[in-house]
Design a protein around this nucleic acid. Sequence first.
DNA 1: CTGAAAGCGCTTACAG
DNA 2: CTGAAAGCGCTTACAG
Lengths: 370, 370
Amino acid sequence: MTAADSAALHAADGSTGPDATARAASPHTPHADEVITSWTVAREAGVSQSTVSRALRADPRVREQTRQRVEDAARRLGYVPNSLASSLASRSGRTVGVVVSDLTNPFFPSLLSPIHDELQLMGYRVVLFAERTDIPSGQDALNRLLDRSIDGVLVTTATLRSPLADTLRMRGLPLVLLNRYIDGLDVDRVISDNRGGAVAGARHLLELGHRRIGVVRGPSNTSTSRDRMAGLQDALHAEDIALDAALVREGSYSHQSGYQHTRDLLRLADPPTAILCGNDIVAFGAIDAARSLDVRVPQDVSILGFDDVPMASWEVFRLTTVSQPFEEMATAAARMLAERIDQHVEIGPGREQIFPATLVKRSTVGPPRS
Amino acid sequence: MTAADSAALHAADGSTGPDATARAASPHTPHADEVITSWTVAREAGVSQSTVSRALRADPRVREQTRQRVEDAARRLGYVPNSLASSLASRSGRTVGVVVSDLTNPFFPSLLSPIHDELQLMGYRVVLFAERTDIPSGQDALNRLLDRSIDGVLVTTATLRSPLADTLRMRGLPLVLLNRYIDGLDVDRVISDNRGGAVAGARHLLELGHRRIGVVRGPSNTSTSRDRMAGLQDALHAEDIALDAALVREGSYSHQSGYQHTRDLLRLADPPTAILCGNDIVAFGAIDAARSLDVRVPQDVSILGFDDVPMASWEVFRLTTVSQPFEEMATAAARMLAERIDQHVEIGPGREQIFPATLVKRSTVGPPRS
DNA sequence: CTGAAAGCGCTTACAG
DNA sequence: CTGAAAGCGCTTACAG
């Protein structure tokens, strides 16, 4: 999204505000459809078009008095600079593309909010590239990223071996990977310690006495899912316990996947006593599945999530999960990208920032029934 | 968002695809940072720049053979037209702005998905303007809507008496109001029958015998909240029942609001036997509140939502609610806007499309304890 | 401190 | 069917 905030727009209800310009404009714009450009403003202010351009961008070289005159004229006319022309001429629209997945998964809005806020603070607008499975237009989406309307890209849904990031990099587009990374691709990235977080989560289950641990993991082509699995294995190995392959299911990061796979697991002759879920939305599906089978959580089965989205703390869920510091991660990624775009940073090796992932104990994990 | 879908991007993992162009480009682009324009392609294909422009937009006047030659050259060079230049020259970027509220409320993603899909199908990219309460930049957001990067706007969060829509209209920007409308503003709008839906919901409660009905309504400056209240009053009047003002709370459309106000209502000396919530997210907060007080739903209190977001049917909620046909509404609004933009429709009076809102009975409403 | 002019990379009459 | 040229509305050296 060129996510902007219209909060203040609405907040301005009934006051002078956005509409003041429009009102003031009418006496000077007899024809409503007459386009107002910097030339119009120049004429009105009695200066050259170049001076208008400079004044409005607060170029220190223009005299304060002149700037004032230009700004007044611009306000009277309700002038808004044409961003297309300005971006074309300056070769930058201060616009960043953010690639996210299905917004229906609360994880992405949670990550997006801080990204948007930070980027906006730095003067960038953000255009959202939302993954949709039902409309096939990959080349289209890629082209929109490469059509010069975007100055840099934040990818939150990188898939292992996906050519997207590599293509963008070859095209010279500043790029930062957030949340998921790609093996052997030397670009900036901001991730959390998925492996460590999974170790903490798994250990918690083991300490409570769980031995038959089920898993509804995310897609194996994502670094997050792979690293979380690795963390689970680490914790298991430390206790000399083997993961029962029959209890491991792979699915998408969705409620549907959590629901279906958990139902399958719970209907096994010898069901797991705890289920480690790929992320929170999967865990919500798992909780739903348990409920649909009258299996109590955590008395009959423990459920562990990953992410700690806001919903996780709702009373109906009180999900025990591994928390990722969304805000800090988003902020760090936004800053990294801005640095690359603003050329403060040499084209150099990819930088990496790893944030801790910590266990948050709530009410969906307990000791196994014995 | 210029929401695009990267689904296929990722789907293209490892195949030839997006990166094929990049690969093929290298022999022809010794300097990676050399910008490739339509002139580069013209030289490569041995035609004029105008012909390149025409060929690539499939102008029927260019000979098939020429078109082929140009397309081949473009592919070899990995050429992607500069959308800024193209939009500036053609005065249209086929881009629509969609103003939504906090994406954290699942209602908006649910509405956004079909909007995005439909618009994309029609060749528009969509830029999301997401309302944020924590960053004050109303004029900023308005300017971004008016800076010529947007050809039309879909507003889903119009607030009664908000100047936004009026300003946009005065600026001549094609505009469609979706979900909420503004009194006395003659613009296109697509809404659901909020009043009728509320009547159906309230009647359901009355038929079950509820007489002390509590309300956690949405903001009074939204048409949705006001119309739903009117519907409730209609149903009450028909039965000659008066609404107890002490049981009516106004809040935002948020979990937090539903939670807090419901806790207050439930701790009253004589609490309501049913609570009509402003929308689903408020209802989820209400369910959480009941749970936090060990009040059973629906045995001790009935809870009714509005919207029927996907989460409403999750097992943990099984929320009885009033369903709005999101997809159809979104599609209708997208089409209406596209018509305005494409000038198929005269500047004329605002058109209105109203969709039915229907009661969906699930498990959060039952007879009152007697 | 300000202006005239070139240029950003396209689209689109206007000729031919 | 194709090309030369003007123009979209800005930014930014280059002069003064």
